[in-house]
Simulated assay, not measured.
Amino acid sequence: MEAFLVSTGLVALAEIGDKTQLLAFLLAARFKGRAGTICLGILIATLVNHAGAGALGSWITSLLSPGILRWGLGLGFIAMALWTLVPDKIDEETEGGGRLGLGVLGTTVVAFFLAEMGDKTQIATVALAARFDGALLAVVAGTTAGMMIANVPAVLLGERIAGRVPVRLVHGIAAVVFALLGVATLLGAGRFLGL
């Protein structure tokens, strides 16, 4: 349960103001009245993307010694804390899905999948799966839930809430949580997991 809750909270916080949340706003504006289809597309893209990222994280734990893994994860979480403080912009390649003739669902799946490639929430999923070795399903379910918590309101409420969410404060909170997780990992808080 801890893996699910930590994964959900970290990704939901990190996703506020992220390029995929901005993409959710754009898709909602482009495909008015299709919120359910857009949300389904976000879910599909996130599940596929984060399942692959989580599998990579689990595989990494089988390759590295516990000491190296602990240092790598600890420093990785601290790097995620710093990265969370950098504002995102939507990349051009994630905006072009509508020109491919894929419809609302296909456009959303392709755009979100591409937007998540190398994104901080995908990399966080790799790190969380490595940190909570043996809890791959809980991590993927948690990171997916975090994405949905952040992006469904963006789709449903559109730009009306964009100006009301204190993005810098939320990013600051997420950065603190990532940093604390990194420091705790470096100090050996993961010993009970064999890290």
Rank of each mutant, 00 (worst) to 15 (best):
K89T: 07
V6T: 14
A45V: 00
L82C: 12
L22I: 01
S58L: 08
L26T: 05
A138M: 03
G190F: 01
F25T: 00
R34C: 05
E15C: 03
N151Y: 10
V167N: 03
I38P: 12
L10D: 12
L64P: 03
L180M: 15
V165I: 15
L69K: 14
V139T: 08
V48K: 02
K32R: 15
L114Y: 00
A35R: 03
L186T: 06
F112K: 07
A55L: 13
H171Q: 15
A35G: 07
T20Y: 01
S65G: 15
A184L: 15
G67S: 14
G41N: 07
L22R: 05
T107H: 01
R70I: 01
E15D: 04
G146A: 15
R34I: 06
D119E: 01
F31P: 06
C39G: 02
G57H: 11
G17L: 11
A3T: 08
A51I: 12
V140G: 01
G52Q: 04
I161T: 14
G17T: 10
M80P: 15
L40H: 05
L13N: 01
F192N: 14
A81R: 03
L27P: 00
L63A: 12
L186D: 09
T20Q: 02
D18W: 00
I78F: 08
M147L: 08
T185I: 13
R160V: 00
V86T: 09
W59P: 00
M117P: 03
W83E: 11
A175S: 11
A129D: 02
L56W: 06
F192Y: 07
G163F: 13
Q21E: 10
T144P: 03
P87Q: 09
I149G: 12
G54N: 03
L23T: 02
I44R: 00
A51N: 00
L43G: 14
L85H: 08
L105Q: 00
L156D: 02
I68E: 13
G182Q: 14
A115F: 12
L187I: 09
G96C: 11
I173D: 08
A154V: 09
L157P: 03
L157T: 02
D88W: 03
A12Q: 05
I173E: 04
I173G: 13
V177H: 10
A129H: 07
A174E: 09
S65Q: 07
L169V: 15
T94C: 12
A14Q: 04
F4M: 07
T37S: 01
F77D: 05
R168Q: 13
G103Q: 07
R99V: 09
T143K: 01
D133K: 13
T144G: 09
L193S: 15
G76Q: 06
T125I: 15
D91I: 04
G190T: 07
V110F: 06
V165M: 09
W71P: 01
A175Y: 01
K19V: 04
F132D: 08
V177S: 06
G146N: 13
A135S: 13
A28N: 01
A184F: 14
V183D: 11
A35C: 06
D88K: 13
L136Y: 02
W71Q: 14
I68M: 15
A154Q: 10
F132E: 02
V139N: 10
T121H: 06
L114G: 00
L102T: 07
E92L: 10
N151K: 14
